[in-house]
């Protein structure tokens, strides 16, 4: 058997691939196809589908009512990514420049909240941000800093705060990994060649950590774009993202085909993002 496999590497490859491949085929690719097909069908009255081909769902997707939600979701996801990068890069840089022992402790501290239930953490923000009974507004009001409660809840601000908080670790980790790989003597070499601290960052540190920045941004942007729990809780039912619309189509409006069409559009956007990511990492690897 062993000899047979050694002589036929292709067979060996298929044997290694088949368990995972089978699982993904049944539970990922097949459902994806079902969603794809549903998106071209008509809705049944009480959910389900009627087997009648139509483009109507995709036409409706571009109806401003829904398409604006798409744009707003993208806007929220981009802002989330931006703020994660703004907070995450210095943090990653700080961790990467500590001693090995301090580093592992700090990485652990970074990851522990990430391993806690996401729902619980989001509800924790609810108690902080709520307009009239939230901790922040209550504290500021009783201290006399503000006269009326700040609009901290039920808007894009609350959603972005929740998302940035939730996805910050996945921004930090790849940037940290890129900075950790960076040879410190490159920084010294740049200093030695008359570069100021700012020039060292712009010409050496930033370009060499870019693969980590791109990876982190993708890892934040994609789940942020499709997020559902955070806007449902912190959006207070007023500020919605595309994830909430999709779930409503399936659970409340009983319009499975339209939900499927919305899902397909989002999938396409994410796929484009992922392709861009892989292309840029391939290019970065070819450069390094």
């Amino acid at each position: 058997m062993q000899q047979f496999l050694r002589r036929h590497p292709a067979v060996q490859a298929w044997l290694l691939l088949s368990p995972g491949g089978l699982f993904l085929s049944v539970f990922f690719i097949a459902p994806l196809f079902i969603v794809l097909i549903y998106s071209f069908l008509q809705r049944g009255t009480y959910g389900g589908v009627v087997w009648q081909f139509t483009f109507e769902n995709f036409r409706r997707v571009f109806d401003p009512l829904y398409f604006n939600t798409f744009l707003r979701s993208a806007y929220i996801a981009i802002l989330t990514t931006f703020f994660c990068l703004l907070l995450g890069y210095p943090l990653a840089y700080f961790i990467a420049s500590r001693s090995p022992r301090t580093r592992s402790l700090m990485l652990l501290a970074l990851m522990i909240p990430f391993w806690t239930n996401f729902l619980i953490r989001t509800y924790a923000w609810l108690t902080l941000l709520r307009t009239n009974t939230g901790l922040i507004n209550t504290a500021l009001l009783s201290l006399g800093v503000i006269a009326a409660p700040l609009p901290l809840f039920g808007n894009d601000f609350a959603i972005i705060v929740g998302l940035v908080y939730g996805w910050l670790p996945v921004m930090v980790l790849p940037i940290y990994a890129a900075l950790d790989r960076l040879d410190p003597s490159l920084i010294e070499a740049a200093r030695d060649l008359y570069a100021s601290s700012a020039q060292v960052f712009r010409r050496v540190i930033w370009p060499l950590s870019l693969p980590g920045v791109v990876a982190g941004s993708m890892l934040v942007f994609i789940p942020a774009l499709g997020s559902f729990v955070t806007p449902a809780i912190l959006g207070g039912g007023k500020s919605l993202m595309i994830g909430n619309i999709i779930s409503n189509q399936f659970l409340a409006a009983h319009d499975w085909p339209f939900g499927s069409a919305l899902s397909m559009l989002m999938m396409t956007l994410m796929l484009l993002g992922t392709l861009y990511y892989f292309r840029s990492t391939l290019k970065a690897e070819a450069d390094a």
């Binding site: 070499a189 030695d192 060649l193 100021s196 450069d287």
Partner: peptide
């Protein structure tokens, strides 16, 4: 004085060439 203000240049042990 920081390294960038000194009239010297260094050849590093592992060369430290900028890979990008």
């Amino acid at each position: 004085l920081p390294p960038n203000k000194r009239p010297v240049n260094t050849v590093f042990q592992q060369y430290a060439l900028f890979p990008h």
